[in-house]
Simulated assay, not measured.
Amino acid sequence: MEPPVDPVDGKIADTTDGPPAVSVCPKLIVLTKRADFLRASHAKRQGTPGIHLQARERNADETAAGIRVGFTCSKKVGNAVARNRAKRRLREVARAILPRHGQSGWDYVLVGRKDITATLPLPQLEKDLIRALGKVHG
């Protein structure tokens, strides 16, 4: 296979000028241990119409760096299908907002709300998360 040729001057195209193939935004670390969720539940909280946010700043002795995030929906949200739909939407909102508005060294838990998280438009959920982060950090 031959390298691509630039149609203008006939030279071999330089493929390093374009955007990187891998996203450069920081990767979110997902909380999986119950103890992390419990510690976040006893820290700062902020409710919005679409999302309930729990946030805590990690201690200096905790080794994890970056932003950690967890997602949860109680059975009040609905059956398994409704809970999974709400959590998928929470993950998408977190992926879009937390790298820009979250702070490194913090744990965030996004809690879905009954009948609202799964039905609100994504831009509204994003605004709710930005507002909640502003209140927690402000």
Rank of each mutant, 00 (worst) to 15 (best):
V5T: 12
P7Y: 03
P7D: 06
V8D: 14
G10M: 02
A13G: 06
G18N: 01
P20M: 03
I29M: 12
L31S: 00
T32A: 11
A35L: 10
D36R: 01
D36I: 03
L38A: 13
K44W: 09
K44C: 05
K44T: 04
Q46D: 02
A55R: 00
E57M: 13
R58K: 11
A60M: 11
D61C: 11
A64K: 12
R68S: 11
V69G: 07
V69Q: 05
G70P: 03
T72F: 05
C73P: 03
V77P: 07
V77Y: 00
N79P: 04
A80C: 01
A80F: 02
A80H: 00
N84W: 00
R85M: 14
A86C: 06
K87I: 04
R89E: 13
R89M: 14
R91C: 07
R91I: 08
V93C: 14
V93M: 08
A96P: 04
L98W: 05
L98G: 05
Y108N: 01
V109N: 00
V109L: 00
G112D: 07
R113A: 02
D115M: 07
T117P: 08
L120Y: 09
L120H: 08
L122M: 15
L125F: 02
L125A: 07
L125Y: 02
E126R: 13
K127F: 06
D128T: 02
I130K: 12
L133H: 10
V136F: 09
G138K: 08
